[in-house]
Write a protein that binds this DNA or RNA. Structure first.
Lengths: 248, 248
DNA sequence: CGCGATTTGTGCACGCCTTCACAAGCGCCT
DNA sequence: AGGCGCTTGTGAAGGCGTGCACAAATCGCG
């Protein structure tokens, strides 16, 4: 035991190691949003936040936020609110962001290129430590300070650099093969930008981001809105009566 | 009435205009995935698919798929399966993809640059018709065949080109202002890549894609997996007993 | 023409998530 | 010290989504 975890459990007092009262998946997905809102609030000099205030900043219902925070053994004070700094530390700990995680990126086309230079990764606890591509002509090229390596080196480098998270930004046709290589290299989390389903062992987590799908969902709502306004005489659409909240 | 809708309601026979038995949001989010899988199947020459086959290709449960399709008045044949071509047309109609939708992109930094050249948009019914940025030094630059315009032109161009969908790829600080401009220009759907919450009228749909959040969610699962394998003696992690399916 | 194999469409039960509403707790002011 | 207002934390209810299991329907073959 005591593998990593350089005692940064904030507050928690006589906390044992367990750490996870199995948070609901929906809560986990919102924690990063709370974290971002908290950082913003912290920069404005706020010391404490009410659930109402934080909820507004994160774009959710205040009851939902309180329940989410209560799941992680919340550290708020009744009548006052949440201590911003403490809550940041707490969420970062739960999300495992106190240890900077090594990420590798495979596929340096249009999208991969942009991801390699995306500030949001570094600023939120992630470091891209290696770039890979199958195209020999790209190997050796320096992109945002990192050299592109050939994908055949992935296995070795992944072990050396203790890479646990891989990002796939290849064309769909190559994605499954890349995923297989990543899994073989011990990567247990994959963020997939390729428009295809990946088949991986059950101990590997995959999250998929498909930019076109997001647009198609919006397209549906456009279609629906158009057919609604077309039917009941030409309403000018500024009227209410059309509540819609597209979830993430 | 009869604004657009150049009678491409496939099959549907004596269908009236209604078109939407208010599909569940969860179903809508999966339709694009089915569509992609269907296109793949179509290219392999398949004529019909069983729910089992299509579900596998889309990475979902077959019962879920059948229920989803049934919501849109499904066009399958018992004992046979679904006609690939017919189903494609049906889903594309529901998603409103039969009419090529004009999209504009605001913010041409790293990410915006990549999005401007992303093939997946054009190949799936969307056309980026205008690029905008606030940086004067970028205005006039040609990116992937389109000139960058200054954001002050957005209002005029959006109306001219009948733009209904806007993509925001600016820094977080500028996103709300851009959203306001988009809304004023009549845009009713926004895809937001900036890490912040947008405040828009209720008739405007916003979908958010935050790349760092996806990584943070994966980080949590890494953290959890690490703390699990750390406790019960050094298990090699290849053992089962750890079912995990990260939803989209 | 009837029967069996196959596959869709769906009623139902279960579980997760959201939301409301309120009791419990904390600080501040008098 | 006591009371009041404010805010958290949570029990309970309702809604939504998922998945099972089966009836209904269609095709092909004898």
């Amino acid at each position: 035991m005591s593998q990593q975890r350089h005692g940064s459990t904030p507050g928690h007092g006589a906390g044992a190691v367990p750490a996870f009262p199995d948070l609901p998946e929906a809560t986990i997905a919102r924690l990063p949003e709370y974290l971002r809102a908290l950082h913003n609030l912290g920069e404005t000099g706020a010391d404490t936040v009410s659930s109402e205030g934080l909820a507004a900043a994160a774009g959710v219902n205040s009851a939902k936020l309180r329940k989410d925070l209560s799941h992680l053994g919340s550290y708020g004070t009744r009548g006052v609110g949440y201590d911003v700094t403490l809550l940041i530390e707490q969420i970062e700990y739960v999300l495992g962001l106190d240890q900077r995680r090594a990420v590798c990126l495979v596929g340096l086309g249009n999208l991969g290129h942009a991801l390699a230079g995306y500030d949001g990764f570094a600023s939120r606890g992630f470091k891209i430590v290696a770039l890979f591509d199958a195209d020999e002509s790209k190997v050796g090229e320096i992109i945002h300070g990192l050299p592109v390596r050939h994908i055949s080196d992935l296995g070795r480098v992944a072990v050396e650099e203790k890479i646990a998270i891989g990002v796939i930004a290849t064309p769909a046709g190559a994605a499954q093969a890349v995923a297989d290589v990543l899994v073989d290299a011990g990567v247990t989390s994959i963020l997939n930008f390729a428009p295809c389903v990946l088949s991986v062992p059950s101990n590997v987590d995959v999250r998929k981001v498909d930019l076109a799908i997001e647009l198609q969902i919006l397209s549906f709502h456009e279609h629906r809105k158009a057919s609604l306004t077309a039917l009941p005489g030409g309403r000018s659409a500024t009227t209410a009566g059309d509540q819609e909240a597209v979830g993430s």
